[in-house]
Design a protein around this nucleic acid. Structure first.
Length: 456
RNA sequence: GGCGACGUAGCCAAGGGGUUAAGGCAGGGGACUGCAAAUCCCCGAUCGCGGGUUCGAAUCCCGCCGUCGCCUCCA
């Protein structure tokens, strides 16, 4: 498949270096619950992984949790809790939400507080090789010692000077230098190291942990476009300086960011302009969220709106009904292969999910036509479910209903059927209307009345 | 100031030198239905503005306007 590589700024043919795809995805900081933007990120990488696996690759998937960082320390202090406590709570929540979204779990979820040795070792080597220096209790990466600095984000060190912020009191040699190890401060967690007590800087964790769990080169390193600089640029520099080999990662995959229409900046937790993920999941269900995200190309920015999510929910229902309603007995059966080919061609082209979805919707329409004509649809429906599964769609009803209500619903349907056969339509209609108010949709078909939970 | 994107029907969103400019949602008309629902059929855009290149541009170039991302924590 062709995949856009931020490093080369071009589409390239993707083939893993070894016999499995080594994929590292930047995970969340654990100081607050996830929002819809995080869901977007993990849905996209989930689809990338699912498609690679569908294409026959074995994928080894690692995602970090950032459990030591300024925000967590501040949050823990403000709430009187430990950072471990805070981290555990958000990890639990993260897994519940990701499971609800149908995100396949990564093989490892390393956390910097549990990988201090690897991080310290990496800093030590960088110091030994002269790529890093100690100053004021901290250890910094010496950007000028790494000539390739800027190759990922397309910046040069000189142009960085213009906008660089230099905090008074910082002991950096150069404003673009970044911290590898932060010297211990009063009231902050710290670990012993050959360069004094302290804690890891932000960027170093991803380098140390990805190299430990996957090894160089990574085939794919991914995250949001907001991570290209400085986070990923710094990872490249410190990793390649450490190993003396390049590339650190062969493909860099970055997705566009989610934003709100009336607050067009990207959704982010510290701005508070967010849609909490648990709320979105409750209201729309996992398939609608996926359809919303995948209806736009992953590298484009995506604008959130209630209307767009409601539209995605309606689209999910359309696909679900096409995949699940029973077809007839007659031939000729629908041939799904042209739709399947379109789907694969789209996915092969830099994960063109909007076009892949278009193929699925067209297949759904074809199935519906065939069903209307009393033709067999089972095979085409199986293909529809298979391809939807590559996108992680469940095609299941998202709205829960109480199982113990089912006998009563069915009894009401029987009574209503009797009323209809006696042409007492006013009563029959009022039962249907009442059930709708209670959240149950009735549909009368030649094969009888069927029901489903109302979605809204 | 530097670097990078985006602007396509009411809404979301593909495409990216010659195609009837995908698909979804919403809306209108029709079929089916006792009525609905579901489904099917039909209906809508010349692509931010102004120049230019070309036989031909939504697609390339230049300028302008608007919006966003990064340069600081960030999916």
């Amino acid at each position: 498949m062709r995949l856009y590589n931020t490093l080369s700024r071009r589409l390239e043919e993707f083939v893993p270096a070894g016999d499995e795809v080594r994929m590292y995805v930047c995970g969340p900081n654990l100081y607050a619950p996830c929002h819809l933007g995080h869901a977007m990120s993990y849905i996209i990488f989930d689809v990338l992984r699912r498609y690679l696996e569908f294409r026959g690759y074995r994928v080894r998937h690692v995602q970090n949790f950032t459990d030591i960082e300024d925000n967590i320390i501040l949050r823990a202090r403000a709430t009187g809790r430990t950072i471990q406590d805070l981290a555990e709570e958000h990890i639990d929540l993260f897994f519940r939400q990701m499971d609800a979204l149908g995100i396949q779990r990564a093989h490892h979820y390393p956390r910097p507080t549990q990988e201090i040795d690897a991080i310290v070792d990496m800093v030590r080597v960088l110091l030994e090789k002269g790529y890093a220096y100690q100053a004021g209790g901290d250890v910094y990466f010496r950007v000028l010692s790494f000539p390739d600095y800027g190759k990922l984000s397309g910046r040069d060190v000189d142009s960085l000077m213009a906008g660089a912020r230099v905090d008074p009191g910082e002991a950096k040699e150069h404003p673009a230098d970044f911290v590898l190890w932060k010297g211990a401060k009063e009231g902050e967690p710290s670990w012993d190291s050959p360069f004094g007590p302290g804690r890891p800087g932000w960027h170093i964790e991803c380098s140390a942990m990805s190299l430990k769990y996957l090894g160089q080169p990574l085939d794919i390193h991914g995250g949001g476009q907001d991570l290209i600089f400085p986070h990923h640029e710094n990872e490249v520099a410190q990793s390649e300086a450490y190993s003396g080999r390049k590339p650190f990662a062969r493909f860099w995959v970055h997705h566009g960011l989610l934003r709100l229409p009336d607050s067009p900046e990207k959704m982010t937790r510290h701005l508070g302009n967010l849609v909490p993920l648990d709320e979105a999941l409750d209201r729309f269900g996992p398939d609608a969220l996926r359809l919303f995200v995948l209806g736009s190309h992953y590298r484009s920015p995506l604008t959130y709106s209630e209307e767009a999510l409601a539209a995605a929910r309606a689209g999910a229902r359309r696909l679900r009904l096409a995949a699940t309603l029973e077809g007839g007995e007659r031939g000729p059966e629908v041939d799904p292969s042209p739709y399947r080919e379109r789907f694969l061609a789209a996915m092969d082209d830099d994960l063109a999910t909007p076009q892949a979805l278009a193929a699925l919707f067209d297949l759904a329409a074809e199935i519906n036509r065939a069903r209307d004509e009393g033709r067999r649809t089972a095979h085409a429906q199986a293909v529809l479910r298979e391809l939807a599964g590559v996108l992680g769609l469940t095609l299941r009803e998202p709205t829960p209903y109480r199982a113990d209500a089912v006998p009563f619903i069915e009894m009401l349907i029987e009574v209503r059927q009797e009323l209809r056969s006696q042409r007492l339509y006013a009563l029959a209609d009022s039962i249907r209307a009442r059930l709708l108010e209670l959240g149950i949709v009735l549909e009368d078909t030649p094969q009888g009345t069927r029901w489903r939970p109302r979605e809204d």
